[in-house]
């Protein structure tokens, strides 16, 4: 009745020259598009020696933690962690990334939100998880005063670079900067 059946049979005939049909396997849970893409992306991660990952549940590759230990720049000596949560809409939506420590950084607010263009307005499905971790790493090498999420930190960076550096050291040691107490992240 529906024409689709005869079409499919013709398509199959054209594709394979006679392989015996097999008994249908019981229906299994299908691998989702997001899982497929993450499996591929993970194999392409270049973590170098400044980054490591942790998978609380290895069977769930959509949720993991990334650790960054910058080996140069103002944040050298600290260890920062980011939670990665990949939604079923990935790669059509960016992964959700949050900094797990309260840190003093012009582009990361005290709730852990990160201002990185490819995590929001400039995300494209052709980008991958590696692009995100490279972007995060870059934030520690070159904090950016023109995209402020932590306004005080951005002002400090813009107006008094040496003072900003001192504040970074102080905050990383668990100290207080401008009345805000930060978490100790020194290794």
């Amino acid at each position: 009745m529906l024409k689709i059946w005869s079409m499919k049979k013709e398509q199959e005939k054209a594709e394979n020259a006679g392989e015996g049909t097999t008994a249908p396997a019981p229906k299994k849970k299908r691998v989702t598009a997001a899982q497929l893409r993450v499996q591929r992306d993970l194999a392409e991660l270049s973590l170098g020696n400044t980054m490591t990952t942790e998978f609380p549940d290895p069977d769930n590759i959509l949720s993991f933690i990334l650790y960054i230990e910058p080996d140069e720049g103002m944040y050298k000596g600290g260890r920062f962690s980011f939670s990665f949560n990949v939604t079923p809409a990935f790669p059509h939506e960016p992964p959700k990334v949050l900094c797990r420590e309260k840190i003093y950084h012009p582009n990361i607010d005290t709730e852990g939100k990160v201002c990185l263009n490819i995590l929001r307005e400039d995300w494209k499905p052709v980008l991958n998880l590696n692009a995100v971790i490279v972007g995060l790493q870059f934030l520690f090498l070159e904090p950016n005063a023109s995209d402020p999420l932590n306004k005080e930190a951005a002002d400090d960076l813009r107006n008094n670079r040496d003072g900003f550096k001192r504040n970074v050291r102080q905050a990383m040691a668990g100290g207080t900067v401008r009345g805000e107490t930060y978490q100790r992240v020194l290794v």
Partner: peptide, 18 residues
């Protein structure tokens, strides 16, 4: 090769922790 099913990670070459 890195191998998974829909619900189980069988073996992943990378990243090192996995």
């Amino acid at each position: 090769p890195s191998v998974r099913t829909a619900t189980k990670t069988l073996y992943m070459q990378l990243p090192p922790s996995l």
